[in-house]
Each structure stands twice: as structure tokens, then as C-alpha cells.
Design a protein around this nucleic acid. Structure first.
Ligand SMILES: [Mn+2]
Ligand SMILES: [Mn+2]
Ligand SMILES: [Zn+2]
Ligand SMILES: [Zn+2]
Lengths: 166, 166
DNA sequence: TATTAACGGATAATGATTATCTGTTACGAT
DNA sequence: ATCGTAACAGATAATCATTATCCGTTAATA
């Protein structure tokens, strides 16, 4: 059993366990989310689904992704600029690292954060139900591209000036 | 000199220092952002500006807030659902605690996070330029309201069931 | 195979934000 | 103080991701 196969079986069983119907379109979305190692946009899922089911509509992808999110089987990364992204393999809160140039998103290793929600709950009286930690930066590939483009002048000066002191 | 007065002076000097004109509408937005201790929506700023300048348009508030953000003098908290919020007093990255019921946002005290960007940069090769940490929960006031509403039955059962194990 | 509520496809509606256009004004120069 | 002008404000249209609505189709169960 592959990793994504086990994940797909889990998603299917959760869906059926709650009495939802398992349609070909849904199966295709589940498969893509289970197999993807990244953080897909709805448009990306839509494009991949259409390879197998060209009749599928964008609305169906939205509905399926929303359904999985409400069941807690997919993590939604909402963005106020540009479309949301979905992690179908780790539906629980975890840090993300986002390239502001190419929009690639990865899961970085970050040490010792699990105690933070409890600490915030104690000091504020809030009941914490969720959290989110995003780092924004420029990935190595995009850094290399930048060095090619604006070499030995404007680029480096701008980079120096972009250092902020708070 | 009051705290908000000093902040207002700073915002004005930054604006003029970069050659932007200081219009009454802008002055009003600056004043509100400097004086607010919270995290305002554009609509909230707009409503307050109109008390002094009834002719002000919503577009002008958007433009001014965007300008301040680009100058690094306002922190934008973007949300994919519902409008963005703006912190005019602490424009640098810091954690936020958001009530998912009443949308109130406060700045909680969270210990020892400043080393995280450096850690992520080292382990991934990304150049980190920004980050964001949000906690989502229910504030004490909304908890009390919930206890009034759905008492000794559905509410507590739902709350128990909402505990997730990852 | 029949039944039927759930679902899919198509498309309109929504809502926050941004773009565009035109008349006005802050501000440096005269 | 007046002038000239680029920057700005107001009004409103456009954008774009997401959600709602409607109706024909189908997965699931007996
Ligand atoms: Mn992830
Ligand atoms: Mn804040
Ligand atoms: Zn990149
Ligand atoms: Zn609340």
C-alpha cells in the first residue's frame, strides 16, 4: 500500500462513514489531494481532474474541497490576495513557508511550537481552536533568478535597503 | 505629547518625507490609525473618517491604507473570508489572537519567537522577509454568551466533540 | 429495477478590493 | 498672494475568487 493510497482509503472511508455519496468526480478530487505532496489551488485541482473527467465543473471542485475542509480532512490556507491553497495530507495546523515570487509553499521543520496555543489560552482566557504560522520569503530558485536579472547593482542595493529595524 | 500624538507626527513626517501630499482626508485616516488601539477594518476607518469629513469616499480610505502599508507604517492582516484589518501602531510582524465569533483581534504576549525566521532561513535556504502567526479562538465574552444560549445540553456536547486528536 | 435524496454542471450573484476617469487641490515656484 | 501643475479625491465600473441557485442526473439502497 502506497502512502497516498492509504490516505485515499482514509478519505473515502470518512466520506462514506458520514453518509456522503462517492461520485467519480469526488473520487478524482480525493485522489489528487491524497497524492499531492504540495499545496494545491482549486484551479490546479480542477486542471488535474479534467484530465480524467473532462466534464467536471469548477464548482464541483469547490464543493468537494469545502466538504473535506468541514470534515477536517483538508487544511485550507486562505489568502486575501490570490486563491486559497489546500493541503490534503496534513489537515492539522502546521507552519508553512511561502515564496512571494513563485507562490510555492512547503512545510518547513520548526521546533517546539505545540505549547504556544496552551500558553496563549492561559494568559488571555480565550479558548484556542486553531492557529496558523506562515513564513514569507524567496525560495532558492527565485533568489538565483533574481541574481541573474539585476546583477551587481540595483538588486543588491535594494536588498540592503529592504532590511528593516523595528 | 500623547502616545497617539507622537505616532501621528511620525506618520505625517514619513508621508511628507517621501513627497506625498497631506490632504485633510489623509490626515483623518492617519489620526484614526494612530489613535486606535485595535485592528480596524477599512469600513470602520471609513465610518470614523466620515464623522469629520462626510464627503470622504471609501476608495480614498483604501488608497491611504494601501499607501501606508507600502511604506511599512501599517500592518495589514489579510483574511480570505471577510475584510482585511489594519494595525496602525505596530507595523512590524507580531502574533494575533482572533475571536472567530465576534472578530475581535488582540495582541497576545507570546514568548520567544524572534529566532524562528532565522531558524527557518537556515534550514531551507529561503530568504525570509516576513511572517505571521495567528491564533483563532473564542474570547471570554463570547464564551459567556455561548454558555447562556445553549446550556446543559447541545452546546457542551458539541464542544466535547470538537476536540480533535492529530 | 425502481425510488429518491444527494449530487453535478452551468451560470448568476456576491463582496472586498482595485482600476479608471474627471474635476479639485495642496504646495512649491514665481 | 497668485499661479501652475502633478497629485489627489470622489464616483463608479471592473475584477476575481468564491458562493448560491437552479435543474437535470445518478449513486446507493432495497
Ligand atoms: Mn502543509
Ligand atoms: Mn496587532
Ligand atoms: Zn520561488
Ligand atoms: Zn468574541
Amino acid at each position: 500500500m502506497t502512502e497516498s493510497g492509504a490516505r485515499l482509503d482514509h478519505l473515502v472511508s470518512v466520506l462514506k462513514g458520514r453518509g456522503y455519496r462517492l461520485t467519480p468526480q469526488r473520487k478524482a478530487v480525493l485522489q489528487i489531494l491524497a497524492a499531492s505532496d504540495g499545496h494545491l489551488s482549486v484551479e490546479q485541482i480542477y486542471a488535474r481532474v479534467k484530465k480524467d473527467f473532462p466534464m467536471t465543473s469548477l464548482a464541483t471542485v469547490y464543493k468537494t474541497v469545502t466538504l473535506l475542509k468541514e470534515m477536517g480532512e483538508v487544511l485550507e490556507l486562505g489568502f486575501s490576495d490570490g486563491g486559497n491553497r489546500y493541503d490534503g495530507r496534513k489537515p492539522y495546523p502546521h507552519p508553512h513557508l511561502i515564496c512571494i515570487r513563485c507562490r510555492k509553499i512547503i512545510d518547513p521543520e520548526v521546533t517546539a511550537l505545540s505549547h504556544l496555543p496552551q500558553e496563549v489560552a492561559s494568559s488571555t482566557g480565550y479558548r484556542i481552536v486553531n492557529h496558523r504560522l506562515d513564513f514569507f520569503g524567496i525560495c532558492p530558485e527565485c533568489q538565483a533568478a533574481e541574481n541573474q536579472a539585476g546583477n551587481n547593482s540595483a538588486g543588491q542595493a535594494a536588498r540592503r535597503n529592504s532590511i528593516r529595524r523595528w
